[in-house]
Design a protein around this nucleic acid. Structure first.
Lengths: 154, 154
DNA sequence: TTACTTTGACTTTCTTTGACTTTCACTTAT
DNA sequence: ATAAGTGAAAGTCAAAGAAAGTCAAAGTAA
């Protein structure tokens, strides 16, 4: 009988919190949560780093100091169309193709014209000081971050 | 759960004061305000120094002694101010500082809340697979691209 | 072995508090 | 009229407090 790993318990706990709240995010306090599970605070970081990654559709935001917190957002990839685009983007994308997708977002009324301009501003090949391959890889990361954000705001 | 920071409460209080008055400035008395929030007077200075800076588009004017006061002006910012911010960004910027500037853009109605979220999405440290220095450098490039785009659309 | 997990010491960031200083307007004594 | 004193502000700065982050060593499981 497999003794459940602590990390899995914490992972599930967080996911349940999110479902119960019916929200696409939760806010926790690291020490508090560590206390619930009676573990080292850094264990929480481990769980976040291994289970709530960008790849898995989560975004973490945190603040230190008094009144600090950790917020875990789930990019609600419920949207099929956007989901499909995210897959198509993959790990590398050219400037023109990226702009093509952004225009598609605009066509589908997922974003405004201004938002499209802002996105395109950082898709621009000329502003990135890297090799072509690196630019394409970076662009894919940025575009996916945008797409996830758009899906989240849906 | 999310215990709001005192500093944030004070910040909001001041901003509300300003909005309610329908003015671009507000005058307070440090001790009086400290009394409202039941805190050390120097806490007020902390809030002013961290949240009502020039970079955020605010200007502070004060006078000591009997009949002293603190006036907080919300500057009417323009492309000029954006250019100043672009200069301040320089060649490298941390995630928190970048978000700080984005919040300032929002505060001064240069951008919408959604646009701010999109910008912040790609400022996120965790989505970038680079060293800290490289991330900071890249962020500066991206943020400046956004700023120029915002200025252009103005 | 090899990869994954747990733990803990140490660091960094942000906030709060309080003692002490400076400035200013007003009063009082010369 | 002037200088000195007094009290009422705001300013400064450093220490204490309150989080989260990092990293590597030790432990476990496949």
């Amino acid at each position: 009988m497999g003794m459940a790993r602590l990390s899995d318990l914490i992972e599930n706990f967080i996911k349940e919190l999110m479902e119960e709240a019916g929200k696409h995010y939760v806010e926790i306090q690291r020490n508090e949560l560590a206390n619930v599970f009676n573990c080292a605070p850094s264990q929480i970081n481990y769980v976040l780093e291994t289970r709530f990654t960008i790849d898995k559709g989560y975004i973490i935001e945190s603040k230190r100091g008094g009144g600090g917190y950790i917020k875990i957002y789930k990019a609600s990839v419920s949207n099929n169309w956007i989901n499909q685009v995210i897959e198509n983007v993959g790990d590398s994308i050219s400037e023109s193709k990226a702009k093509y997708y952004i225009d598609a977002l605009l066509d589908h009324n997922f974003i405004t014209a201004r938002e499209a301009s802002l996105m395109k501003a950082v898709m621009n090949d000329k502003i990135l000081p890297f090799s072509q391959e690196e630019k394409n890889a970076l662009r894919a990361i940025l575009l996916k971050a945008f797409l996830m954000e758009v899906a989240r705001h849906k």
